[in-house]
Structures are given as C-alpha cells and as structure tokens.
Design a protein around this nucleic acid. Structure first.
Lengths: 212, 212
DNA sequence: TAGATTGTTAATCGATTAACAATC
DNA sequence: TAGATTGTTAATCGATTAACAATC
C-alpha cells in the first residue's frame, strides 16, 4: 500500500519513538523483527505498529517480519531527518543554551545556524561555534539567509512579538518553549510546543490524584 | 455532579491550560465567562469545556456562566497546586539549571528542595539558594527527607540507573527529560515525559511533509 | 508444504461534538 | 417571565485493537 493522504497527529508523534527503538535494536546487532516483538519492546500492540507503518507503505514481508536497518532508514526518510533544516535559537539563557548543545550532538533533523538574544551581556559571546547576535538583527538575518524554523526559548510576551515578526517574513515553523499558543493566531504554521509548566502541573495533578 | 472516577489523560493535560487562560482572563478584570466565550479564546468547543469541567463538578450557573476566580480556584485545587510537592533536580547542566530557575519563579505545584550532579566541578556550587550535592548523596538524602518527585535532567542511561535507585526507596513520581521510557519498566508510577528530540523530529516531519 | 507474520478490513473503544431539557 | 447558558445524554468521529485472508 502507498502512503495515506492524512497522517494523524498520534502517528506523527510515534514516529520518533519508532526511530529511537529501531536504532537501539539495530545497535544490538539484530537484523529483523516482527511487529509482535517490536510491540513488546515498545509497549504497543502489534496491530498498532502494522497500522502505523502501513499508512506510509508496506515495509514488511509476510512470514518474516521487518528488516530493521531498512525500516529504520524508511522512517528516517519519512521523518525527513536528512533535510538538516536550518534552525535559529531565539533566547540564549540556560534554556536556549541547553537546547543548542543538545541539538548539536544528537540527530534530530535540524542544524542550528544562528542564535539571538536581547541582552547586551550575551550578544557577542560564543555558543557552539556561533556568536550570539542581537535580537535587533533577527529579521535582517532571516531575510538574508534561508531559515526553516525558529526555536523560541523566550518568555511568552516576547515570543508573541517575535513570531509576528518572523511570520511576516515567511517563517512558519516553530519549536515553542513559551506558553504562547501560536496556533491560535496563525493557521498555516508547523509548531511543536514544549510547555514545561503545563507538564509539571499535569504531573502535580497525577501525584495529588494518587494520594486522594 | 460530583467528581468522576476516571479522568482521561486528555483532560489531565488540558487542566493546566484552563488554569493558564483563567489566570490571564482574571488579570484582565473580567469576572464571569460562558463556556462559549472561553472556548473561543482557547480554541476549544464549548461542549468540550463543559464536559471537562463537569467531570470534576458543576462549577457553573445556568443562564450565567462561570465565575472566573472561583473556577480558577477550583482548577488550582483539582491540579493540587497548593501541595507544593517537594522535588529534586538530578543533573545540573544547562538543562537542569534552566528548569530549576524556571520552576523557582513560576507557580507549578512543586518546590525544589535539593539538586544533584555527578560532576565534581558542579558539586558545591550554588543553584537557587541551594548547594549542588554529589549524586553519591542522592539515596541518602532521599531516605532522610520526604521527597515527592524527581526531575531527571540527565542522559537516558544515567536516568535508568537513577530511577531504579529512587524507585527502590519509594520515589514514584518523575519529570523525565531523558529518552528513557520509565513507564515500560515500572507500572505504579506517575511520570511526565519531555522528549526534546522526539518533539524536534515531529516538527521535522511536519515541515518535510508540508514541502512534499 | 507448513508455519509465521504481514497487510488490511471489521469491531471496539474512547474522546469530541451536538442537542436539549433543566434552571438560573 | 424570557433569555441565556449550564449539565448531561445521545450522536459522531477518530484512534486502537482484533481478526483473518494473503503470502512469503
């Protein structure tokens, strides 16, 4: 079967997990796996795995299973890891720094090509092999260089202004650490939100609920 | 209606958002709101809001709507924000530092009571008003002090070992920044995962998919 | 060939949306 | 009282699981 038209958000968010586990299993020197065995390892059902994979194509072989390297490469290609999309980091506090360092060392589909901060103390300092630029230079830089995505490591009020400026010059992909809900203001964008406070509060609920 | 037995994960993850928006609206000086108006602001449907809220109790008034401060307080109480659960940070690199600073300034249901690192360079340095302790002191500290939750800002191999040690002394709540899937090894725990790499990869997929 | 396991359709489950009687 | 809006039940939608024919 060929690739389905619509891929659900649930599937999109499982793709990186497939990639991660297939990488681990491949490193263990195993060359093939059945949906049942992979399901046991990943805590899914074999049905779900076959459904997920088959929304992109028939990567398995009846009676045999899936070739791990092959499947891993297929998923890498589906995610688009080899695109090495050009990303910029906005806000170079501890969060921006940790994100930059993390992205630099682990394969994730992006490469960081610039970073910006509003603080004069940080502008000109080094991060990875880059010099932190002034936020005043942001729009200029992004019009002169092709940028695929912006990683927002700034508070929500600043994020709101920054997204507006970037959207106006055509940048429509964001990794958002602020609590500003970008997708409410713009429809034709790609965004992943990492809302630390919301995660903590959900965890708080779970603990509190457990102790009732 | 009184509180339902089972609250779905989907609802649990919307609670912090309700709290966030109600706080914003309250600050704007508005005192009441209908499910319809709140839905428009939050990008939900009024049905969903009424369903969500009614799984905890009837907080509204027919013909009127919801009193904002009252509802915000109810949700704060449902999440359990006033518990101020005692959390420890494990790993005080840039990520650990940014999480610590963030948690210190924003209300989230937790307070950080200690932080640990394996690096001798970091042990003894200050973070918030705490001194970074050696990871060797972790189990000892946690047996002598009541700890509600551990925030894992370390790589997955270390996370796996650390979780085992903590689980064995009864700590069963984790905010996990590593890619180790704790819930596959332990069933009776509360966990929130923040998988930065997975989020980036999902974003990568969305961009790549958009450009097909 | 027989056994294993996929790809795919059908059934089930859960979450969202619609509808409306209750009631402020 | 009339209008508004909730609380709640019913309908729909989407995602997961089960089942099984196809086939390696």
């Amino acid at each position: 079967m060929s690739r389905k038209q619509y891929i659900s958000p649930a599937i999109i968010h499982r793709l990186p997990r497939y990639y991660r586990y297939l990488s681990i299993i491949e490193k263990e020197g195993i060359s093939k796996i059945s949906s049942k065995d992979l399901a046991d390892i990943m805590g899914l059902t074999s049905s779900q795995i076959r459904q997920d994979l088959n929304s992109f194509g028939g990567f398995g072989q009846q009676g045999y299973g899936y070739n791990i390297s092959e499947l891993k490469n297929e998923i890498s290609s589906i995610i688009g890891l080899n695109n090495h999309f050009k990303a910029i980091i906005i806000g170079v506090g501890n969060l921006g720094k940790s994100v930059a360092n993390y992205m630099d060392k682990a394969e994730n589909g992006f490469e960081i090509v610039a970073c910006f901060d509003k603080s004069d103390d940080l502008v000109g300092t080094g991060l990875l092999n880059l010099k932190v630029q002034s936020i005043n230079n942001l729009v200029n830089f992004c019009t002169e260089n092709r940028i695929d995505s912006a990683i927002l490591c700034i508070p929500s009020e600043e994020a709101k202004q920054t997204v507006k400026a970037l959207y106006d010059i055509g940048i429509k992909s964001f990794c958002n650490f602020s609590s500003y809900d970008i997708s409410l203001d713009y429809r034709d964008i790609q965004v992943e939100n990492i809302h630390l406070r919301d995660s903590l509060m959900s965890l708080c609920y779970k603990i509190a609920d457990e102790r009732i």
